[in-house]
């Protein structure tokens, strides 16, 4: 492909949805995802000379987007703040100092088999993720929605593995409670 054929407007037509989907999986925020797609197309335009035509156009643009996402998340997540949120929280809401559950978690006996029920539950989880503190949300999203490997997330966010696991544990319990508050899981 020659430089003359590059067109950000056409990229938007042909790859906009795919880039948006990728950004949404990684960060789960519509506004940010749209901004990132826009920045990516602009960066692609500025650096169009570097596209050598060996890779597919979409692959090349996704590579740019991936870097933009990592930069964005890095700027939002700083380990020190993350740890303060995670570990120095004086009001640990789930466990007593002796390590016992403060409040019995609900039974969660049912395994939703019906497609509709699974979808309803997944929708609610998504709504609950949106309520997590921003930094926890980004870590959780990268792992559970984008499906990134633990090591990759730790590297990307400059997180120690221990802090990563603390954050994931906190986020999961918060989501579980949120789901219970919306009628999923049953009290014994």
């Amino acid at each position: 492909m020659t430089a003359a054929e590059h067109s950000p407007q056409r990229w938007l037509q042909e790859h906009g949805d795919a880039l948006y989907g990728y950004a949404m999986r990684q960060i789960g925020d519509r506004e940010m995802a749209v901004d990132l797609v826009q920045e990516t197309l602009l960066a692609g335009w500025r650096n169009r000379q570097s596209f050598d035509g060996r890779a597919k156009e979409r692959t090349w643009l996704t590579g740019i987007l991936r870097h933009k996402i990592i930069d964005k998340i890095r700027s939002l997540v700083r380990e020190r703040e993350l740890v303060q949120q995670a570990e120095n929280d004086p009001t640990d809401p789930w466990f007593a100092p002796n390590g016992a559950w403060l409040e019995a978690p609900s039974a969660w006996r049912f395994e939703p088999a019906a497609e509709l029920e699974r979808r309803r539950m997944a929708d609610q989880i998504e709504a609950c993720i949106a309520k997590l503190p921003l930094r926890h949300r980004l870590v959780f999203q990268a792992r559970e929605v984008a499906g990134e490997e633990t090591a990759e997330i730790c590297k990307r966010l400059e997180l120690s593995p221990t802090n990563f696991h603390v954050v994931m544990h906190r986020a999961r319990l918060a989501l579980r409670r949120c789901l219970e508050q919306h009628g999923f899981g049953e009290r014994k």
Partner: peptide, 23 residues
């Protein structure tokens, strides 16, 4: 059970998102 169930549902949903996301 609850944590595992959430984990599985999220992975299923992520697999669908590829096709569903639209500007």
């Amino acid at each position: 059970r609850a944590l595992k169930q959430m984990h599985r549902l999220l992975r299923e949903r992520a697999a669908q998102m590829d096709d569903d996301a639209r500007l």
